[in-house]
């Protein structure tokens, strides 16, 4: 009676309608929630961070202060998520092997080899100025990972593997992760709490300078290392073909 085309169309129409309805419901709820908050909570109490973060952490970027100090435990958790997904990718895909040697054209490679050292400046800046300006360990780490991926794409996986061996990536990821967890323990040994910053005796420094914010720059660095290494090795796993497991069954 009805052709498959119409059936598929109707199914998709229903699905689309449902999705729109659901998301509009979400919007209504969020707006209602905002209205409720505006009614119940006085405006000056609205936001506890901005007024105090400079004094308490020495970081003028409040978002970084939250990420790396107030809610550093979240950051530890998400670094662990990255770590776990690297491990999962490795577990699922097996050891990366027999890297392909496809490269970009000569022109691109020439240009890149000249420009690449310059490209490294940006992520490092983002990481080191995380507590001063928008940015931080995650953003910088991702940019670094992009560079590693760029090397792989432009010069071929084999070259990439030679320049930055997978083992080094893995080791630096584990090292950064252990460093991240280890820094947390400083707080405990100093008689404060886990992942404490100023309370654990890290120098607050002068707000607005590079050497400020206590442990925040260090955490930024470690997170940056970890994210960079983690995301690059995810790429390596996804891109590399496993030597012993070429497609057996094709359906």
């Amino acid at each position: 009676m009805e052709s498959p085309v119409i059936r598929v169309f109707l199914t998709r129409l229903t699905a689309g309608f449902l999705c729109l309805l659901l998301s509009l419901g979400f919007v209504v709820l969020l707006l209602d929630a905002g209205r409720h908050r505006a009614q119940t909570i006085p405006t000056q109490m609205e936001e506890p961070y901005t007024a105090r973060s400079v004094a308490e952490t020495g970081s003028i970027n409040v978002v970084t202060a939250i990420l790396m100090d107030y809610r550093a435990f979240d950051t530890l958790g998400e670094a662990t998520v990255i770590f776990a997904s690297v491990a999962v990718a490795a577990a699922i895909l097996g050891k990366p092997g027999s890297p392909s040697n496809r490269t970009m054209g000569l022109l691109s490679r020439r240009q890149l080899s000249a420009l690449l050292p310059l490209f490294f400046i940006f992520p490092l800046f983002v990481i080191f100025h995380g507590h001063l300006s928008p940015g931080g360990g995650f953003q910088g780490g991702v940019s670094l990972a992009v560079l590693v991926i760029l090397i792989h794409v432009a010069f071929g996986d084999r070259f990439g593997e030679e320049v930055i061996p997978h083992r080094i990536l893995a080791l630096s990821e584990y090292g950064a992760a252990i460093g991240l967890v280890g820094i947390g323990f400083v707080g405990i040994f100093q008689g404060s709490a886990y992942l404490a910053n100023v309370a654990a005796g890290f120098p607050r420094g002068t707000a607005g300078t590079l050497a400020s914010g206590g442990v925040i720059p260090l955490l930024n660095l470690l997170v940056g290392m970890k994210v960079a290494a983690g995301l690059s090795s995810i790429y390596v796993h996804l891109a590399g073909h496993e030597a012993e497991n070429v497609p057996e069954k094709r359906r």
Binding site: L76, T80, L171, I178, V181
Partner: peptide, 25 residues
Amino acid sequence: MNHLPVLVVVIPVAGAFLISLVDTV
């Protein structure tokens, strides 16, 4: 302060990192 609540999370996390490190080395 009693650090047990955070230790129950941090110890296995650090342990997982260590296991991976040991596995590599």
